[in-house]
Design a protein around this nucleic acid. Structure first.
Length: 278
DNA sequence: GACCAGGTATTGC
DNA sequence: GCAATACATGGT
């Protein structure tokens, strides 16, 4: 795996605990392990079954890419922009908490929040690294504690999730065994989990490759780049297609400049009708 | 100093 | 069912 491949997979917005170092290597915490991975040692790292699983080495991505590129020229452009994206097999609990926090935040802010959460409640792993807190650890937190970390209205969502996990009402093993629609329904019973967060948990935490998280970027991209298409059109690899489209869109905001102008025009008009009067 | 961000729950029509 | 709105905050 070359450095471009690491950049694609770890920098495409699917994970929040990896950082790119000045020399092009990446450092991250997964479970209770810390890994510094570079193009030079990647092959050796995935000799270890744990990391092979995490990087999803058993999936033939080249084959899937081929099918995608033949399906739609716009999708082919997104694939060619960052072809080496792989869908990591992340921990579902961590994915749930991370994407509960992600609401109305940009990725740098999400990374900051997750970092503060781990420092406050996770187990130390040495060298200034902390594990993602387990449900029992997070269950000790009160809403005000989490608000103090800057989580805002998302604080109660984490409290509720931790409580449900500890009490056994939230069981990822049970959800993993369900068909997609039912798994999604099970997750959306949790406070603060709507269709987007549920699909993120399914795709990134339970590796359901047909889950298709639809956020602001994906909604924009679907309207502009894939008019008339919907998630199901992308088939069993819709989740991977979604990741290609998400990353491509975020790196090409100019594609949506017209829509942004429209939004600003509407905002301005709304303001002129209701000037601030304190 | 706006603008915007990997949304969700609630409310009102 | 669907649009509007509140919810909190910080990165750029």
């Amino acid at each position: 795996m070359d450095s471009r491949a690491l950049d694609h997979t770890l920098g495409c917005g699917q994970c929040f605990r990896w950082r790119r170092l000045p020399d092009g290597a990446w450092e991250g915490v997964v479970g209770t392990r810390v890994l510094r991975v570079s193009p030079q040692n990647f092959g050796q790292a995935v000799q270890d079954a744990f990391w092979a699983g995490y990087f999803d080495m058993d999936t033939d991505y080249a084959k899937i890419r081929g099918q995608m590129c033949g399906f739609d020229p716009a999708l082919a452009r997104a694939v060619c922009f960052a072809p080496e994206i792989r869908i990591l097999r992340q921990d579902p609990w961590e994915a749930l908490c991370s994407f509960l926090l992600s609401q109305c935040c940009n990725i740098p802010r999400i990374m900051g929040m997750v970092e503060r959460l781990c420092r406050a409640y996770g187990s130390p792993l040495g060298e200034d690294q902390y594990a993602f807190p387990r449900p029992e650890q997070l269950a000790a937190a009160r809403e005000k504690d989490l608000r103090a970390l800057g989580f805002g209205y998302r604080a109660i969502y984490l409290c509720a999730a931790a409580r449900n996990a500890v009490e056994g009402k939230l069981d990822f093993g049970r959800i993993a065994a369900l068909p997609l629609a039912q798994a999604r329904a099970g997750l959306t019973e949790l406070e603060g989990v709507g269709p987007k967060v549920a699909d993120c948990v399914l795709l990134y935490g339970l590796h359901r490759m047909d889950a298709f998280p639809s956020d602001v970027w994906i909604k924009r991209a679907m309207k502009t780049l894939f008019p008339g298409r919907e998630a199901a059109d992308f088939g069993p690899w819709a989740g991977l297609a979604q990741q290609y489209i998400f990353h491509y869109s975020r790196c090409h905001p100019e594609l949506f400049a017209d829509e942004r102008k429209e939004r600003q025009k509407i905002n301005k008009a709304a303001l002129s009708f209701s000037p601030n009067e304190v």
